[in-house]
Design a protein around this nucleic acid. Structure first.
Lengths: 192, 192
DNA sequence: TGTACATCAGTGAACGCGCGTTCACTGATGTAC
DNA sequence: TGTACATCAGTGAACGCGCGTTCACTGATGTAC
C-alpha cells in the first residue's frame, strides 16, 4: 500500500480535510497540513481536485450524498421523527462535511455534481413532511428543517451545552441532544 | 474629525470588521484590510484590542448586547412570537456579528465581559418560553431557539432560498423569511 | 514472453503574496503649577 | 496666561511565517505488438 502510488489518495485527502475542518473550521483548512498528515507531497491533490475550491466542492458533494443516505435509511426504518434525528446525528458525526455543505460562498455552485447531490440530500426530509399532510406544508418543512439544522449548529459550536443549564454534559452530549430533538420535533408533528 | 486622532477608532474597527466578515466569513477577516478601509495604520487596532482575538471578542460582546436589546424590545412590545422573529431579524441585519457570536473556538471564553454579555443575550427568549407555561419547557426552549437559529443560519448561507422552491426570491427575502418563521413558531406555541 | 512506448500519479524547488506581530518612533492632548 | 512634562493615540518599517500555485521532473503502471 505504501510507495510512490498511494492507492486511494482522493478519499484520503477528503477524509483528512474533513478532519481538519472539524477541528479548525473551513478557514483553518490548509491543504499543506492535510498533505503532511497523509504523508504525501503538498501538490499531490492537484491531479485529483485541481484547486482548493475543488477539494471543498468534492467534500460538499460527498457530504450531501452521505446525508441523503442517512436520511433515506431513517425514513425507511422508522417514523418521521427519526429522519429529523438522523439529520442531527449526521451533523454531529460528520462536522467537517456539515460545515462545508452550506457554505455556498466557498463552493462552485454551478458544479453539476454538486447541484445533483444537493437535490438528493434533502429529498427524504421534504417527502416525509409532505406525507404528514400538515395544513401548512411549507411552514412545517421550514420548522422541521430549521429546528434540526439549528440544534445541530448550536450543538457543534458548543453553544447549546453552554446555554442550557443542567441536563447537558459533554461526555454523552450526542445522546442528550438526540433526546432534545425528539421532544422538540414531537411538538411539531403528531407522534405516530 | 480627520487628523492624527481618529476620534472613534474602536467602533470604526468593529464596524469594519463586521462588514468584512459578513462578506468573506470569519476566516476571510484581515485586520490589515479593515485598517485600510478606515484609512488608518494597520497596527492602530493594537492599542484598543491587543490582538486579533481581542477584536473578535469585542465583536462577540457587542453582538450579544445588541441581540439582547433587540429581543428585549420585541418582548416588551408584542407577543412571544415577535421575540423569535426579532432573533432572525437581528441575524439578517447583523450577519458579521452573528457569525462571530457562536464561534466559541475563536473566542476567549474566559473573558468576563463576554460571559456577562452571553448571559444577557438570550434571557428574553428563555424568559418568554418559561412564561408560556409549556409542558416540557426545556424542549420548547430548544425547539424555539433551534428553529429561529436554524432558519437564520440557512437564510444567511443562501441555502433556504435555494432549497425551497417557489416562495422565496432574493429581493425581499427578509420579509418572506419572517413570514415563514412566524408560521413555524405558531406550530410550537399557542398563538395569542 | 519480452520489449517499447504512452499514460498516469506523485515530487519538490521556487514563486509571490498577505498575514499578524514587534518595535522604536512621532504627533496630539491633557494636567500641574 | 504660559510653560514643562506626562500620557495617550496612531505610525511605518521590518520580521518571519504559512499559504496556494506554477513548473519541469521522475517513478510506476498499463497497453500494443
Amino acid at each position: 500500500m505504501a510507495g510512490y502510488h498511494h492507492g486511494n489518495l482522493r478519499d484520503a485527502i477528503l477524509a483528512g480535510a474533513a478532519s481538519v475542518i472539524s477541528r479548525d473550521g473551513v478557514g483553518g483548512l490548509s491543504l499543506r497540513a492535510v498533505a503532511a498528515d497523509i504523508g504525501v507531497s503538498h501538490t499531490a491533490f492537484r491531479r485529483h481536485f485541481g484547486s482548493r475550491e475543488g477539494v471543498l466542492n468534492a467534500l460538499a458533494v460527498q457530504g450531501n450524498l452521505m446525508l441523503a443516505e442517512w436520511l433515506r435509511g431513517a425514513a425507511a426504518a422508522g417514523e418521521f421523527a427519526d429522519v429529523g434525528v438522523a439529520y442531527v446525528r449526521f451533523a454531529l458525526a460528520n462536522p467537517g462535511h456539515f460545515a462545508v455543505m452550506f457554505r455556498s460562498d466557498l463552493l462552485d455552485n454551478d458544479d453539476p455534481e454538486l447541484i445533483c447531490a444537493r437535490a438528493e440530500s434533502l429529498a427524504p426530509l421534504r417527502d416525509g413532511v409532505r406525507a404528514l399532510g400538515a395544513a401548512d406544508a411549507t411552514a412545517t418543512e421550514v420548522a422541521v428543517w430549521g429546528v434540526v439544522h439549528g440544534v445541530a449548529t448550536l450543538a457543534l459550536t458548543g453553544t447549546l451545552a453552554g446555554a442550557l443549564d443542567g441536563p447537558l454534559h459533554a461526555p454523552d452530549q450526542a445522546a442528550d441532544v438526540e433526546s432534545l430533538v425528539r421532544r422538540a420535533l414531537s411538538m411539531l408533528i403528531p407522534p405516530g
